[in-house]
Simulated scan of single mutants.
Amino acid sequence: MQVDFYHLTQAPLDRVLPRICERVLAGGGRLLIVSESDDQRARLDKLLWTYEAESFLPHGQAGEGEADQPVLLVADVRAANHARNVALADGIWREEALAFDRAFHFFDEDRIGEARAAWKGLADREGVTRNYWKQDENGRWQKAA
């Protein structure tokens, strides 16, 4: 299982998450997006419909035909859409993410301490590959670890 830590320093989640969704869907996968915040899930729901004028990302929220949704927004880590990829959008690491094939853990400066603790906690886990991605001054993602 692979855990990708994304340190949001230049671009906000709203610019990064749709690209991750596109990549997962293009590869034939499904994605579970997790946030405890009702407000954040509502913002992300709107974002995924409107992030580009010419396109949208097919998705739904928990309780909306969950099994059929290629991208599902939820409050807890429960893959009702049979996703094998999970995006932790609120900066909170959850051990349940380890049940997926791949986890995307997004965090900003407000959650950096928690992200470091999660990174260290996964260091000796059997079968877990960690990647740490950070944006350079031009906003490009660079693998830092």
Rank of each mutant, 00 (worst) to 15 (best):
Q40F: 09
V86C: 03
N81D: 08
D39A: 14
E95N: 14
Y6G: 04
F5M: 03
A80L: 10
V3Y: 00
K134R: 11
R94S: 13
F107N: 01
E109L: 12
Q142Y: 13
A115K: 01
Q135T: 11
E64A: 14
P18R: 04
D68M: 11
R43G: 04
E114R: 07
E126G: 06
L72S: 04
A75I: 11
P12K: 12
G29L: 03
H105P: 05
V16L: 08
L32S: 06
R43P: 11
L47V: 11
R84N: 05
S35N: 02
A118I: 01
Q142S: 07
D136G: 03
K134G: 03
G139V: 06
L32A: 04
K120F: 05
L122T: 01
V3R: 01
K134L: 09
G65Y: 02
I112G: 06
R140Q: 13
A80M: 08
S35E: 04
L8I: 05
Q69G: 07
V71G: 08
R125S: 06
W49P: 03
A103T: 08
V3C: 04
D14K: 02
A99G: 08
L8F: 04
Y51C: 03
S55R: 15
A11W: 02
R84P: 01
H7N: 15
L32T: 01
R19C: 07
L88F: 02
N131E: 06
D124I: 14
V34N: 01
L44F: 14
H105C: 14
R116M: 05
R19M: 10
R15H: 14
N138F: 08
D38E: 15
H105T: 09
P58F: 12
I92N: 06
P18F: 02
V24Y: 02
L31A: 05
D136M: 11
C21R: 01
E109N: 09
D45V: 14
S35F: 08
S55F: 13
G29P: 00
K120C: 05
A67C: 10
E66H: 02
C21A: 01
E36L: 15
A115R: 00
G121N: 14
P18K: 06
Q61D: 09
L44A: 01
N138A: 15
A118L: 09
H7Q: 14
G60F: 06
W141D: 13
L47W: 09
F100D: 00
E64F: 07
D90S: 08
R15F: 13
W93R: 01
G139Q: 09
Q40V: 13
